[in-house]
Simulated assay, not measured.
Amino acid sequence: MVQTKIWKKDELDQAVKAIKRGALVAFPTETVYGLGADAFNEGAVSKVYAAKGRPSDNPLIVHVADVDQVARFAERNDWADKLMTAFWPGPLTMILPVKADTVSTTVTGGLDTVAVRMPDSDLTRELIRLTDSPLVGPSANTSGKPSPTTAQHVYHDLHGKIAGVLDDGSTKIGVESTVIDLSTDQPAILRPGKITPAQIEMVLGVPVDSALKHVDANEAPKAPGMKYRHYAPDKDVYMVNDADWTKAIVWAQGQLEPVGLMLTNDQIIAHQLSGMDFVWSLGADDESAAAKLFAGLRRFDDWPEVNTILVTTLPDIAENAAYNNRLGKAAGDHLVNELFE
């Protein structure tokens, strides 16, 4: 078994050495922690799938330190150049045509496209620069489980399977990047994130298809999060709309075992839940809720007495699409009302 280390900023050289010898290193981004391997080292990339238990047709996002690195493996176009200028470094992943004989089909999931982004983390961009290679970077967790937003989350899932984790504290955004497909005639959102379709349309000056695509069982997804079960703890998760919380709390209080409740600060105060053990605060606003969602799911998943988790939805606006999307996948789109039937 590998002895997994947690490295601080001043130990960056240890992470660089590990990547260069073909090992796996988890790294911080503004969204979630990624599981890094040299994108041009097929053996190292294969280890990513093994460590995560990830399906082999689920493509990996390639992370770059600067725009120039993109030309090493992908075909840029005018749309990409505009979005790179507007949103990089930041939480936007672009699907572009892949250059022949560059990254392997292990990276692309066998497709003729490749996903690429530049993370908004000075530490991770320096890691990529020093290794002199783009890094693949799926979320650094067991495949399908809630994504990691701290180094400790990564260690929990992957200790003994990877060389180490580069620790830079909690992530700021807490949900994965927006993914936009730029390889077709019309730009299309494949996964919602902090960057909204309206923001992208403002930059591109063309309509963006924001209707999320369904991927069939025999179809290869172009981006992570499209096909397989994602973001879900082992416990049962139910979504709770704001108007249903009173009834949900009464139901929870009537159960023999504790029920995990995840609400915003205002909801906690309104329902007089402050200070209760099985309540997880999602914070004061929608941005905080997105940043704290996965951490709350993980907390209750690790609590043996809890078998059910109730989580608040956010208002159905574009800025909350990523939160509601991840929550929907974690809950299998189940609403708390099903428990009252």
Rank of each mutant, 00 (worst) to 15 (best):
K8T: 15
A15D: 13
L24H: 09
G34F: 02
D38G: 06
A39G: 05
F40P: 06
K52S: 10
K52M: 12
L60K: 04
I61E: 02
I61K: 10
A65L: 03
D66Q: 13
A71V: 02
E75L: 15
P89M: 02
A100N: 10
S104W: 00
T106Q: 05
R117W: 05
R117N: 11
P119Q: 04
S121V: 04
T124F: 05
R125A: 05
I128W: 08
V136G: 06
G137V: 08
G137Q: 05
T142E: 09
T142G: 03
G144V: 10
T149W: 04
Q152I: 09
K161S: 14
S170C: 07
K172T: 11
K172R: 11
S183R: 10
L190P: 10
I195P: 05
P197A: 10
A198D: 14
Q199E: 15
K213F: 02
A217G: 00
E219K: 13
A223K: 04
R229Y: 00
M239I: 15
D242G: 00
Q255L: 01
L261Q: 02
M262E: 03
Q272A: 11
M276Y: 02
F278Q: 03
D286E: 13
S288E: 15
A290W: 01
R298V: 03
R298L: 07
R298F: 05
F300C: 06
W303T: 14
E305R: 10
V306G: 01
I309R: 06
A318H: 06
Y323A: 07
N324F: 08
N324I: 02
N325G: 01
G328L: 08
E338T: 13
